[in-house]
Write a protein that binds this DNA or RNA. Sequence first.
RNA 1: UCCUCCUUAGCUCAGCCGGUUAGAGCAUCUGACUGUUAAUCAGAGGGUCGUAGGUUCAAGUCCUACAGGGGGAGCCA
Length: 505
Amino acid sequence: MVDFYIKSLKDNVDKKVVLKGWASNIRSGKGIYFVLMRDGTGFCQVVVSQDAVSSEAFAAIASLTQESAFWVEGTVVKDEKQIGGYEVQATDAGVIHIAEEYPISNKEHGVTFLSNNRHLWLRSRKQWAIMSIRNEIIMAIHGFFQKEGFVQMDAPIFTGNVVEGTTTLFETDFFGHSAYLSQSGQLYAEAIAMAMGKVYTFGPTFRAEKSDTPRHLSEFWMIEPEMAFYDLEDDMQVIEAFIKYVVRQVIENCPQQLEILERDVDRLKNVFQPFPRVTHADAAKILRGELEVNGKNALKVQEEDLAQAKSDLERVLNEIAEREEKIKTSSKGERRFHEGKILQLRKEAEVLTEKTRNIPKWIESARNFSDDNDFGNSDETVLTRVFDAPVMVYNWPAKIKSFYMKEVEGNPDLVKGVDLLAPDGYGEIIGGSERENDLNVLLRKIKEHNLPMEAFEWYLDLRRFGSIPHAGFGLGLERVVRWVCGLDHMRETIPFPRRYGRLFP
RNA sequence: UCCUCCUUAGCUCAGCCGGUUAGAGCAUCUGACUGUUAAUCAGAGGGUCGUAGGUUCAAGUCCUACAGGGGGAGCCA
């Protein structure tokens, strides 16, 4: 077992400790080794000087390869230059296992290669930071709901019915009957809320759509609170307090992880502002450029972004050309430096080229947005670009939302749904609503949506025995992780992503 | 399903108008260096250029098909 972990170094300066872990990176000079050790709780440089340890211990360290396991005894020293701020100066060390040649080097790799090596990729620093923030978010979710008096309950994973009626589900065999893997625990959460008051479910969710995008997984984790006697307004208040709480916990408890991810924490802190609320109808106007937000016109902002991307691209291409010219007359060391820069600049140029190709399409899509549509991915990006904080869009056209959402009084074409859109194009992270509590309206809606009435008999009972106003929402864990960490793709937000075209490892 | 880009060493990528023996960095191995931060420096090994056809005196380079992948759209949360 292990008596001491890297995360506790800060409380043990100048003391002698024994660490066990893996060699993440190894550098050496004459008579000295610098081994970056990781032990799951953090990273720490171990310094092994020839005259501070026995010859056996020094030989052990000299034999380490990347990802070899070893132990070290040494003194904790504060050193601001180090990752985590501390290093250990070894007095003794030994090998636990010498690793074979490790496939993931300290250089950059492509996503396909890394995905195929996900079981090893998880060991790298960036992935460690993401996974530990994921853990913090999970704990913060439980922390928020528990302190607010919610009861955590589990919805079933095997289900016989289709909640939304629209999505494609994974079908499986349940003792000779066809069953589906749950796409949402919401209907069950409603039943539980009628028993327990304020509740939340936290479980895996499955969607079988062939969506090959950075925003989709086939298997993901969803948190679904449901509150008895809450209306849409109350729902929105919970959403806002909840997101603020979760982000605050991450900022307070994971500064090192956010630094590793190079996340712009000031941008993240925009969540502490009040969340703007717009109706779907106003959002449509904003998209079409008919309504400005704080003097900002969504279409003009996109045009400015486009112009910016174009000039950035030109600058990057010029710099590449300049450096290529310099290489011809450079010494070897300089050439290597320029080549490294050029590689980086080429990637930047690729991203910018993509942007200049996409933004005109986004502007076109936003300009032509029609009132009764759901937002496309680009529409969410265009809309959130004019806000700093997450945006709540409410009062949606009934025909694009699920049957269980409550109609707006006096306007049956609208329902009391709310989506929370994260800033900077990270998209929808929460979808919620006040639920329809009128039995007759619900019966009509189920028919209109062509859903099998018999599957919903138990659900309709909730409207027969003490029907009350109630509301709730669903939060996609991985989408929140992606946004908080500032990641390009959902595949890095979960240890072993399951998505269209990816079942391995 | 559609649009678009890509596939060259274990990894990341150069390879211009088709022309001699296919290049670099990392990783690996050998050596140098007492404070490195993707350490650096000197050297070595490492290739059926995704697959199958075609054009040509000549194909990594041009054409066609197929396979695999990235980005975008759609479907969707």
